[in-house]
Simulated scan of single mutants.
Amino acid sequence: MDALLLPVVDDDGAPFWEYAARGELRVQTCGSCAEPRFPPRPCCPHCQSFDSQWCRLSGRGRIWSYVLPHPPLLPAYAAQAPYNAVLVEPVDAPRVRLVGNVVAAPGAALNSVDPARLRIGAAVRVAFREAGDGLFLPCWLLERP
């Protein structure tokens, strides 16, 4: 059986994954203009500063968009269909979009939430699930289960 996809950790994004392993949702923020940015990168796209810091977010957000892959693109995901892939807009970083899945609990399967319950604008909060190799992925729980 094929493994589920894991993120590739690079130098710019490594702090994101280190904080996630501690159960913290943080995004890179410009040290000059304070604009949050994701994905992480060396230079601010707004002011071109190379100064950055990692700011903790509240973990609350709203579903900005979602998709239910039909059929699943990779064989390893077929057993979990129908599942969702969501873009979440954090309430405290509205120009940032984070990718993940809405699940019933942090360790639950990708198909643990009925797709009929998903709505654009639905309130969610972050949780983290262990994905292997020491990586913890952000996932999302509906605020009103």
Results as ranks from 00 to 15, higher is better:
Ala21Gln: 15
Ala21Phe: 15
Ala21Gly: 05
Ala21Lys: 15
Ala21Trp: 15
Gly23Phe: 06
Gly23Trp: 02
Glu24Met: 10
Glu24Thr: 10
Arg26Met: 07
Val27Met: 15
Val27Asp: 04
Val27Glu: 05
Gln28Ser: 08
Gln28Asn: 07
Thr29Leu: 02
Thr29Gly: 06
Thr29His: 03
Thr29Val: 07
Cys30Trp: 10
Gly31Met: 07
Gly31Leu: 07
Cys33Tyr: 02
Ala34Lys: 07
Arg37Leu: 10
Arg37Gln: 09
Phe38Tyr: 11
Pro39His: 03
Pro39Gln: 07
Pro40Gly: 08
Arg41Leu: 05
Arg41Val: 05
Arg41Tyr: 06
Pro42His: 03
Pro42Glu: 01
Pro42Thr: 03
Cys43Thr: 13
Cys43Ala: 11
Cys44Ala: 05
Pro45Tyr: 15
Pro45Phe: 13
Pro45Ala: 09
His46Thr: 13
Cys47Pro: 11
Cys47Glu: 08
Gln48Gly: 13
Gln48Cys: 14
Gln48Met: 15
Phe50Tyr: 13
Phe50Met: 09
Phe50Asn: 09
Asp51Ile: 13
Ser52Asn: 10
Ser52His: 10
Ser52Met: 04
Ser52Pro: 12
Trp54His: 11
Trp54Tyr: 15
Trp54Met: 09
Cys55Asp: 14
Cys55Gly: 12
Arg56Lys: 10
Leu57Gln: 10
Ser58Val: 13
Arg60Ile: 11
Arg60Asn: 06
Arg60Glu: 13
Gly61Cys: 05
Gly61His: 03
Arg62Leu: 14
Arg62Met: 09
Trp64Phe: 11
Trp64His: 15
Trp64Ser: 15
Ser65Arg: 06
Tyr66Trp: 11
Val67Thr: 14
Val67Leu: 12
Val67Ser: 12
Leu68Phe: 04
His70Gly: 12
His70Ser: 14
Pro72Val: 07
Pro72Cys: 06
Leu73Phe: 13
Leu73Gln: 14
Leu74Gly: 06
Pro75Val: 04
Pro75Tyr: 09
Pro75Cys: 07
Ala76Thr: 08
Ala78Met: 09
Ala78Asn: 09
Ala78Phe: 09
Ala79Phe: 03
Gln80Lys: 04
Gln80Leu: 05
Ala81Leu: 09
Ala81His: 10
Pro82Gln: 00
Pro82Phe: 02
Pro82His: 00
Tyr83Met: 03
Asn84Leu: 04
Asn84Trp: 00
Ala85Glu: 08
Ala85Met: 12
Val86Glu: 01
Val86Phe: 05
Val86Thr: 04
Leu87Pro: 13
Leu87Ala: 14
Val88Arg: 06
Val88His: 06
Glu89Leu: 04
Glu89Arg: 08
Glu89Ile: 08
Glu89Gly: 06
Pro90Trp: 15
Val91Asp: 11
Val91Phe: 01
Asp92Tyr: 03
Asp92Leu: 03
Asp92Thr: 01
Pro94Phe: 02
Pro94Leu: 03
Arg95Ile: 10
Leu98Cys: 11
Asn101Pro: 08
Val102Phe: 03
Val103Cys: 00
Val103Arg: 01
Val103Ala: 01
Ala104Gln: 05
Ala104Asp: 05
Pro106Thr: 00
Pro106Ser: 01
Pro106Trp: 00
Gly107His: 02
Gly107Phe: 01
Ala108Asp: 02
Ala108His: 07
Ala108Trp: 04
Leu110Gln: 01
Leu110Glu: 02
Leu110Trp: 07
Asp114Trp: 04
Asp114Ser: 06
Asp114Ala: 02
Pro115Phe: 00
Pro115Ser: 00
Ala116Val: 10
